[in-house]
């Protein structure tokens, strides 16, 4: 006579169960004890510092005029050549490039391990308020890049007919140009 015990129902497989439970426990403990805690602050820490650096650089370059002489506008003699203002007013529609003094100052303040992209945005007031933009330093950012910007005010007398901003003024109103810099570590 063969006697079969059919006890599949409601049974726990003891050894496997205990092993699995211990495994989960060990993994959980190791994960939380490790020095790298997956928390939003770790990625933001780097971003905050890089973003702050970007804002400080733009602020440092927004040095405006060394001596105001509105009657001589455009007063290029008294505008600091490494400033955002000078960089904008010297732009030429046919080949818009930042001037060398500006690029030198920018590079002196940013470590070579930081790459950058530089764009300017403005509203063309004489063309139905369309938003126009130029890419002045054309590098392709990575997804972890951060963006900073600063608004620079240009006056009609600041620019010449070869400037990309020339046709964007209406009457004598000033033009707000947003200089946008995107930074990332390489």
């Amino acid at each position: 006579m063969i006697r079969v015990m059919s006890d599949e129902k409601g049974q726990a497989f003891t050894l496997e169960g205990i092993t699995a439970a211990l495994l989960i426990l060990i993994v959980t403990y190791t994960l939380f004890e490790s020095s790298v805690v997956v928390s939003p602050i770790w990625s933001e820490y780097g971003d905050i510092q890089l973003k702050q650096l970007g804002y400080d650089v733009l602020r440092s370059l927004d040095v405006h005029r060394t001596n105001m002489n509105l009657s001589a506008c455009p007063d290029t003699q008294n505008i600091t050549r490494n400033s955002l203002q000078y960089m904008l007013i010297q732009l030429n529609t046919s080949n818009p490039q930042p001037n060398q003094e500006f690029l030198n100052a920018l590079d002196m303040m940013l470590d070579p391990s930081i790459k950058k992209r530089l764009e300017v945005y403005w509203v063309n007031q004489s063309n139905n308020n369309t938003i126009e933009h130029l890419v002045l330093i054309n590098n392709t950012p990575i997804p972890d890049a951060v963006g900073v910007s600063r608004i620079i005010v240009l006056y009609p007398c600041d620019v010449t007919s070869s400037s990309p901003f020339y046709g964007s003024f209406t009457n004598d109103t000033a033009l707000a140009v947003e200089v946008r810099m995107i930074l990332w570590h390489v």
């Binding site: 006579m1 063969i2 006697r3 079969v4 015990m5 059919s6 006890d7 129902k9």
Partner: peptide, 8 residues
């Protein structure tokens, strides 16, 4: 042969 099954 008779199989006797015990169900638990």
């Amino acid at each position: 042969m008779k199989v006797k099954e015990k169900r638990i």
